[in-house]
Design a protein around this nucleic acid. Structure first.
Lengths: 186, 186
DNA sequence: CCTTTCATGTAATGGGTTACATGATTCG
DNA sequence: CGAATCATGTAACCCATTACATGAAAGG
């Protein structure tokens, strides 16, 4: 038994969260990272494979070799009891401060240097992006919000509804903000 | 004349944006990066100094040595005409796709694994954080929104009002979302 | 005299993106 | 038979964080 590798990295916690919902291969995790988790976290396969190996070394995930396509053995990963404990401990620990990094707002902050026409173009692009995201979230929400398991606080769907609702509200606020800016730029 | 180093990095654009508002030393840029730009972008001095050197090599900023405290010469940086062009070109170019990275939502997505009490604690922490940010934005907005230059589309304060309004709306939406979650977790 | 502020740098480490590399199965 | 999908890995590079390093001026 290794000396309980403290909390895993953020990526590690994301992978534990995915595997706690359903065991998967690394390839599958990379796909699931796009949608719907990708709405608030993303990673590609070249990050995921080494991180799965680290989680395995720490005893937080295990894998079985299954038959599948490819030059190397296909592995299906699952969370171990220790991994479940680590995930719960992370969810319950204090929120870490996270540095904000918002390129869209960073640009708008320098919008005083360009022509009003250019500024309007930027805001229109931003609005289109937020609207598209809003529609995607709403569609996903409509699929699961009505299901009975979405009412159960210990079911994954319950948490999915929470996060989708958050995304929807945030994007709606962003679209409203864009409308407000367009009025100021008219 | 060098071969016009394409668009600078995001950090480079942030620094150009800061220097276009007011010439500064590297130390001062690090301070200004905290507040108010830090609401949507952040960097520390160990990133800033090398990036200023790169911007200098590309001819986008210049510096003059001034008298000041410290073992090395104190330099005040300013944007060159080429730097102003690069900043304007970046603001006017197509919005790049940015990967979302939201640790708070990532945790909530795994909130089905913990006790309702723990979940409420997490949401309360998130609400407190968003409320604090909201108050900070509102205070800053109150300081500048009334000024006559904030009405001038080519004045930096105009852009500051846009971004602060955005932050305020986003944080308000987040606080409302937290309230909504608390009702579901009660 | 001690602490804070001003001031500029480098080094080590960690995380993320892009690109390289390989090969089987399935569908048209 | 060719393209897409399944599947797993490594390497190079870039960006960011933390820590190391130095020293003058100002204020208590």
């Amino acid at each position: 038994m290794e000396p309980a590798a403290s909390t895993p990295s953020a990526l590690g916690c994301a992978l534990l969260g995915l595997l706690a919902r359903a065991p998967s291969t690394g390839y599958d995790l990379a796909r699931r990272m796009q949608r719907p988790v990708g709405y608030f976290w993303s990673a590609n396969h070249s990050q995921i494979y080494p991180e799965l190996a680290r989680l395995g070394d720490a005893g937080l995930v295990s894998h079985e070799v299954i038959e599948g396509a490819g030059p190397r053995p296909t592995k299906r990963y699952a969370v171990t009891p220790a991994g479940m404990d680590a995930l719960r401990a992370w969810v319950g620990s204090d929120l870490e401060a996270q540095p904000v990094r918002d390129l869209e707002t960073l640009r708008l902050w320098s919008v005083w240097t360009v022509e009003p026409e250019t500024a309007r173009g930027l805001v229109l692009q931003a609005r289109a992006r937020h609207e598209a995201a809003m529609l995607a979230y709403a569609a996903e929400l409509a699929e699961i919000a009505g299901l009975p398991e979405a009412q159960d606080r210990s079911h994954p769907s319950f948490a999915s509804v929470l996060t989708l609702e958050g995304g929807l509200r945030t994007r709606r606020a962003a679209v409203d903000w864009c409308e407000w800016m367009l009025k100021r730029l008219a």
